[in-house]
Write a protein that binds this DNA or RNA. Structure first.
Lengths: 213, 213
DNA sequence: GTCTATAGGGTGATAGAC
DNA sequence: GTCTATCACCCTATAGAC
C-alpha cells in the first residue's frame, strides 16, 4: 500500500536525485524530508546523495534556487524584453503566474514557509534576479499610486491593489482543498478550469479597484 | 543575542507549557519545534512536559485543537445565535476573521500546512464544530449561487466568490512581509491599519462580484 | 560511480532521587 | 511536582571496499 513513485526516467543519477528531492522538499519541507526517502525515490543509495551534493542542506539550497528561478525567471525576462506600463503588463503577469502555479501547486506554500523563517530574504537579497524583481515592483507601485491619484481614488490605499492581486492569484492554490470542498464539492479538474478563467477575471477586478469603480 | 521570551506570567506549570508550545508550534510547526525549546520557553524542565502531556505529539494535538477552536469557535457561535442571510453575515464574517488574524498572524500558515498534510481533515472531520462549519458553508454557497442566478451573473462561477473572500481576508497575513516590502516599504503598524480598513473594503468587493458589477 | 557498514550527533522519553 | 542523568532511537554523513 506504500506509494513508491520512483523517478525512473532516463536521467543521470544527479538529475534523478534532484527530481526526487524537489518533489519531496516541495511537498513536505526540509525537516520532514529524509535523505533516505530522497534516495529511495531516486532509486539509488543514500551515499550517492552525499557524493553528488555533499549534504542535505546543499541539495535543498540547489533545488530551492531552481524553484525560485522558475518562479521569477520567466517574469523578469518578460519585464526586460517588454518594457511597458504596469497596466499593460497586468494581463501577462496574472496569466504567467497562474500557468506556473497550475504546474507547481506546491510552490507557494513552500516559498511562503521559507519567507516566514526569514531564510529567503537573508540568503537571496543580493541575488541579481531578486534585485530586479524588487526594483520593478517599486516602480510598479509608484505607477499604481500615480494612476490612483489621477483617478481621484482616495478611500483605497494603493497597498490594496498589490495585496489583492497577489492574494487573488496565489491563495486559491494554497487552499485548493479547502476551496474545492467549500464551493459545491468541485473536482480537481473543475478547480483547474476555474483557475484558467481567473486569468481573464483577476485583471478586471484589479483595474476596477485602481480606477475606483 | 538569543531571544528567550519566556512565558513568565502567573500561570500554572501546565498553562506555561501550553503557552510556550502554542507559540512555537504555530510559528515553526511540529517537526521544527523541539521539546527542549518548549521547556526553555516555559521556564521549566523537559521532563515536566512529559509529566503533564505524556508526549510531544499529545501536547501538539491539544494545542492544535485549541487553535482550531479559536479559529472557528467564535464564528460558529455567531452563526447559531444570529441566523440570517449570507450577505448580512458577510460584514461580521470578514470583520471577525481579520480581528482574529491581527492577533494571531501565524495561524493561517499553520492551519494551511496542516491541511496540506491531510492531517486536519483526517483527525477532525467528525468534530461537531467542523461539521457545523461545513454545513453552514454548504448552505451559504447555495445562497450565493441563488443570488447570482437571480442577478443573471453568468460569466463568473460562484466558486470565485468564495475563493476571493477567503483569499482577500487570509492571504495578506500569510504574505505580510512580502506585501509590506512591495507596497512602498510600509511599517508593521501601517500594515495593520490597512488590514482594519479591509474590514469595510472586502465586503464591497465581494458584493460587486456577486451582483455582477 | 556505486555500494555496505558504521560513526557521530541530536531527539524524545523516562527512571529515580528529592 | 520538579529536577538530573541517561537511555534508546533515528538521522545525516562518511569511510572504505569494489
Amino acid at each position: 500500500m506504500t506509494k513508491k513513485k520512483k523517478v525512473t526516467k532516463n536521467l543521470s543519477t544527479e538529475e534523478k536525485i534532484k527530481a526526487s528531492a524537489k518533489k519531496l522538499f516541495t511537498q513536505k519541507g526540509f525537516l520532514a524530508t529524509h535523505t533516505r526517502e530522497i534516495a529511495e525515490g531516486a532509486g539509488i543509495n543514500m551515499a550517492m546523495l552525499n557524493y553528488y551534493f555533499r549534504s542535505k542542506q546543499k541539495l535543498f539550497d540547489i533545488v530551492m534556487k531552481e524553484n525560485l528561478f522558475l518562479f521569477l525567471g520567466g517574469m523578469v525576462e518578460n519585464i526586460e524584453n517588454n518594457p511597458r506600463p504596469f497596466e499593460e503588463h497586468l494581463d501577462y503577469l496574472v496569466s504567467h503566474y497562474i500557468d506556473l502555479l497550475l504546474e507547481n501547486p506546491d510552490l507557494p506554500l513552500f516559498v511562503l514557509s521559507l519567507m516566514q523563517s526569514g531564510k529567503l530574504t537573508r540568503e537571496y537579497k543580493d541575488d541579481p534576479l531578486f534585485r530586479k524583481i524588487a526594483q520593478w515592483s517599486t516602480s510598479s507601485f509608484k505607477e499604481i499610486q500615480g494612476i490612483m491619484v489621477k483617478e481621484k481614488v482616495k478611500d483605497v490605499h494603493p497597498f490594496h491593489v498589490v495585496a489583492n492581486m497577489l492574494s487573488l492569484i496565489i491563495f486559491p492554490f494554497i487552499a485548493s482543498t479547502l476551496l474545492m470542498a467549500r464551493s459545491g464539492n468541485i473536482t480537481r479538474k473543475e478547480f483547474e478550469q476555474q483557475m484558467i478563467k481567473r486569468k481573464k477575471l483577476i485583471p478586471g477586478w484589479i483595474r476596477s479597484i485602481m480606477h475606483g469603480k
